[in-house]
Design a binder for these strands. Structure first.
Lengths: 145, 145
DNA sequence: AATTTTACTTGCATATTGCAAGTGCAAAAA
DNA sequence: TTTTTGCACTTGCAATATGCAAGTAAAATT
């Protein structure tokens, strides 16, 4: 990477640009989708998604997501080989982004499947939808160990 | 690209994944941001953003965004060398995604600048914010020629 | 003790993006 | 009317990011 003398790795100070520098790669939001909607928690489970993320890419994304305080991992108490990945509050706060992406595609492509229920029903009351789902996520992702 | 016999170019039928296949690259959403908030309309203006997109990438993104019916272009009536780019309704419908990205980054990084006014004020009433801004975008991006 | 499972790592191929220079045409200047 | 400048791209090649297949180490299972 070669930008300027003091390289921050960011393209600009625009919030949108910075957000994309953090989660705007090809895979991060799909990993977060799995943590949010599919209940996947371990490396192997995350690797088993339909999109078939390459193992080295998964590993590298998990590291940077953790560095950016979007997820955290804890050893699985039932199997010490394994780690379990959870969303932080910052990660949970990406829910609206993901829901809006989903609703957008659903609106314009009928072939798109929803990944989680109850979103179309709430089309007119997104705030309600965000709140309800955030509440659920807080429950399942709050500090475990 | 080599996926399977009948390659659709998409990773799965998940709406989120499909949305990211469409606008999940490094630049598309930044181009849309400029069309939405900065009033930039021509190739040269779009190229002049802080993030310094490479000219060949800009050209290629504009083509695929147009193919995907997210933007459209028309000759500039005042200068026949130039085209002006506008958002379609489908493009305008990406506004919530972009706003949520912006608000997310603004919440977690104080160094992030907003790109457009009035968003923090509406933090608690996003639906209102979406509606108001969509209305404005419809005005400035509806068929011109 | 041997095999399987799990979370990665490593090496190399392919794809996407970045950079610098160039092209063609229309507008503006001389 | 000729020249110069401006604008929307294209082209060739370098650098970075992603994809694939195989490998490794440690813990669980048999």
């Amino acid at each position: 990477m070669k930008r300027n003398i003091v390289d921050t790795g960011r393209r600009s100070h625009c919030a949108i640009s910075m957000a994309l520098d953090t989660v705007g790669d090809k895979w991060s939001l799909l990993i977060l989708r799995d943590l949010m909607f599919t209940g996947k928690r371990s490396y192997g489970e995350l690797q088993s998604s339909d999109e078939k993320i390459a193992t080295n890419i998964l590993a590298s994304r998990l590291v940077t997501l953790e560095k950016n305080d979007i997820i955290y991992k804890q050893p699985d108490p039932t199997d010490s080989r394994r780690y379990l990945y959870y969303l932080t509050e910052k990660g949970i706060d990406l829910l609206p982004v993901i829901i809006e992406l989903m609703q957008w595609m659903s609106k314009y492509n009928p072939a798109a499947s929803a990944c989680t229920a109850n979103t179309t029903a709430y089309k007119k009351d997104r705030v309600m939808l965000y709140k309800e789902m955030t509440r659920r996520l807080r429950k399942s992702h709050s500090q475990q160990g």
